[in-house]
Design a protein around this nucleic acid. Structure first.
Length: 730
DNA sequence: AGCACGCCGACT
DNA sequence: GTCGGCGTGCTC
């Protein structure tokens, strides 16, 4: 009899001991079913060894899935590392590495995903008034049923704390019964191939970069591939992967967002006919995700393309990890396990002794500094592979009357593109019609009742909406402060720019691409196709359009109102703005006609624009690095942020004060004062945080060992808190 | 996280 | 008395 230590999906730091009857083979990494508290759960055996609990409390494992392949050692090791480094319980990380379909006990459904519905008798009820007025919980639950007909358990639990008892009584009354979960929505239709640029020979620089990676196969070598937009980074990936596939190994390719996956899958398909590619991201239906995961795990898939969660995918013959657009902030998870998939990718490459290839036109300063220090090998693609770089110009908006946020120069250039039958893109960093509704008399701006934020005007739906908490209300007709009825939208969002372009260019076909217009599943893919088929003349869009897409007929990119980032309090704001401008500017001129980029700004003399115009990222990054060094900011300091939120501000500050008090002083770790978050209230919750940093990553980690333990001891009733190691957003 | 247990104030 | 809100403690 062995003791198996099992990872379970409970937010507790420890593993749980179970008796394992007989050893058919090495059980580590095996999926198991175990009894836990009053339920039955899926677990994964992470290690075996002597019991750490009183033996009489140890229960036997109910079932071991011997026939299934186990989670491989490197995935478990990566999970362990992530647990230690990001201070997050191991159990949920390990279970989270499994696709959803493998996390549930078959047959006896866990509490999650259990469905209930009204019985015929229940459907006959007209209102909740059959219940006494004081039976608040039962009334709440019943009204949910009367409204929806059926409900899953978790939705009910969100209604009231005593949902369990309430449901039991509704079942006893014969109004509600157990039900089958509703059928899943049908799979999205397969996407038709977009037009692709034809395969071409590599440039000398591409060949050299690809050659370096190829020669490093079989060793842990991190590379930073810095290539200006349009320099053909993807061709370098292809070339390296080509060599890799010849040896029968698998490649893992990470992309920052779901929208970029289909495009890359297609390009792989076009470049390597017959290649077995698996795509893995959270947008997949559960069955698809399971199949893709199994294809990766069995070794059947030769290339796995996925978003950050794919970094935990089992790959028996992993030979190379590519992280495309490595600077992208989406690689950092913003809740739960707050990991950086890019950093974990490098760690995984190290564990598996394979190269990691991080690519970007605007590398993160973290990676750039690693390259300069020689820990990452720098590969450079300085020139565009096929087309000339776009001409970048600033449009000085000072003293100019803008037409709905757009300058004369921008309008003229758009007009010229229309006449030539080319496409233009207007980049606006805000959704909605206008970011605020203001009073002309007193300056009041409609606030969100639950957040420290202004409500955004959405003219289409005739609503004011909060972009932080989702609150919406009707458009106010009078000022809440002075009663004045002269309220006007202030500032410009995508909808407003769209409508002014429609007005100005009557015959042009204008398409808006933002989170609101692409809410529907597969909407983005449809729009992409329309753009490629030249059914659109002017595009208006947010970040969504900036990343990695190839639109050959697009020759003009105009950037509106990004000035706020120039003087932002966030020390990463300029780094981000540079990346954004480069990214969006890179959309221009990817076909035969050279592109042009116009940046509207009131600060045309700002050095950032100068660097963007000269395509001089290394120069700009070096200057930023010097500033960071002088100010002792990352990458010259390693940070951890303690985040806390509660209903009352005093609760937050009491907790953070106690946390600051519990920090061991000295040791080369700086502990800053607790401060309110940049947006202090979101959805009725007050938020604050406390920053700690050190010039040594090891020292910071040692500090966190004791501090994290001390934090667990603080009375944190009514407070939700979390540690964010290497935070990106504050 | 779930889930049970137990305390206590409010109303048929 | 019951019901139901809420705090506390436990899970190998």
């Amino acid at each position: 009899v062995t003791i198996a230590r099992v990872a379970l999906d409970v937010p507790l730091p420890q593993l749980f001991d179970y008796r394992l009857p007989l050893l058919e083979r090495d059980p580590i990494g095996c999926r198991v079913v175990v009894p836990f508290a009053r339920s039955t759960r899926i677990g994964v055996i992470v290690e075996c060894g002597a019991p750490r609990t009183a033996e009489e409390r140890i229960k036997p494992v109910s079932r071991v899935f011997w026939a299934e392949p186990a989670l491989p050692a490197d995935v478990l090791e990566l999970a362990r590392f992530a647990s230690r480094y990001y201070r997050y319980p191991l159990g949920p990380i390990v279970i989270g590495a499994l696709p959803g379909a493998l996390r549930r006990v078959r047959g006896e459904a866990g509490t999650r995903g259990r469905w209930l519905r009204l019985t015929p008798a229940g459907e006959g009820l007209l209102s909740v008034d059959v219940l006494p007025a004081r039976a608040v919980a039962r009334r709440r639950v019943l009204s949910h049923f009367l409204e929806h007909g059926a409900a899953d358990w978790s939705a009910l639990r969100a209604l009231t704390t005593s949902a369990g008892r309430a449901v039991a009584e509704l079942i006893r009354a014969g109004w509600v019964e157990q039900a089958q979960p509703p059928p899943r929505p049908p799979l999205q239709p397969p996407q038709r191939a977009a037009r692709l640029p034809s395969a071409r020979a590599l440039t000398a620089a591409q060949l050299e970069a690809a050659g370096s990676v190829t020669r490093a196969l079989g060793t842990f070598t991190p590379f930073l591939l810095y290539g200006v937009t349009g320099s053909g980074k993807t061709e370098v990936y292809f070339h390296a992967i080509d060599a890799l596939l010849a040896s029968g190994a698998q490649a893992l390719v990470l992309v920052p967002e779901i929208n970029l996956t289909p495009q890359l899958v297609q390009r792989f398909g076009a470049r390597f006919p017959g290649l077995r590619v698996a795509a893995l991201h959270s947008g997949l239906a559960e069955g698809d995700r399971l199949r893709a995961w199994q294809a990766a795990q069995s070794g059947e898939a030769e290339v796995v393309i996925g978003t950050r969660l794919a970094v935990f995918t089992p790959l028996p013959r992993l030979g190379l990890i590519v992280v495309d657009e490595e600077h992208d902030a989406s690689y950092k998870q913003q809740e739960g396990l707050r990991y950086s998939a890019r950093d974990l990718a490098v760690m995984r490459a190290k564990l598996r002794r394979v190269p990691a290839l991080l690519g970007s036109a605007t590398p993160s300063l973290e990676s750039f500094a690693q390259a300069r220090a020689g820990s990452y090998r720098l590969l450079t693609l300085a020139a565009r592979a096929m087309t000339a770089p776009p001409a970048v110009r600033c449009v000085d908006t000072r003293g100019q009357r803008l037409r709905d946020g757009l300058s004369v120069q921008v309008m003229e250039q758009i007009d010229r593109r229309l006449q030539r039958g080319e496409q233009s893109l207007v980049f606006v960093n805000r959704r909605g019609f206008a970011p605020a509704l203001t009073c002309s008399a007193c300056g009041w701006a409609a606030p969100c009742p639950r957040c420290t934020a202004r409500l955004v005007v959405h003219l289409g739906e005739q609503r004011l909406r909060c972009h932080y908490c989702g609150h919406q209300e009707r458009i106010a007709i009078r000022c809440a402060a002075c009663g004045n009825q002269d309220l006007a939208p202030a500032g410009h969002g995508t909808q407003r720019i769209e409508s002014s372009l429609v007005d100005a260019f009557r015959s042009a076909r204008v398409l808006r691409v933002d989170r609101d217009s692409t809410r529907r599943r597969a909407a983005f893919a449809g729009m992409q196709e329309r753009i490629l088929r030249s059914e659109v003349d002017i595009l208006v869009g947010t970040q969504m359009l900036a990343k990695g897409h190839d639109f050959p007929r697009l020759t003009l990119v105009s950037v509106v109102n990004t000035d706020s980032a120039l003087y932002s309090a966030d020390f990463r704001a300029t780094e981000r703005l540079y990346a954004l401008l480069t990214q969006v500017g890179g959309r221009a001129g990817r076909g035969e006609v050279p592109g042009e980029v116009l940046i509207q700004t009131a600060f045309p003399q700002h050095p950032l624009f100068d660097a963007v115009q000269r395509l001089d990222y290394p120069g700009f990054a070096s200057a930023l690095l010097e500033e960071r060094r002088a100010a002792r900011f990352p990458p010259f300091a390693y940070q951890a942020l303690l985040r806390a939120e509660a209903h009352r501000r005093e609760t937050v500050s009491a907790f953070l004060d106690a946390a600051a008090g519990a920090a061991a002083v000295g040791e080369g770790v700086e502990v800053f004062d607790p401060v309110p978050a940049p947006v202090p209230r979101v959805a009725g919750k007050e938020r604050g945080h406390l920053l700690v940093q050190s010039t040594s990553r090891a020292r910071l980690q040692r500090f966190l060992d004791s501090w994290h333990a001390a934090l667990e001891e603080i009375d944190a009733r009514h407070v939700r808190w979390a540690l964010d190691v290497d935070p990106l957003e504050f």
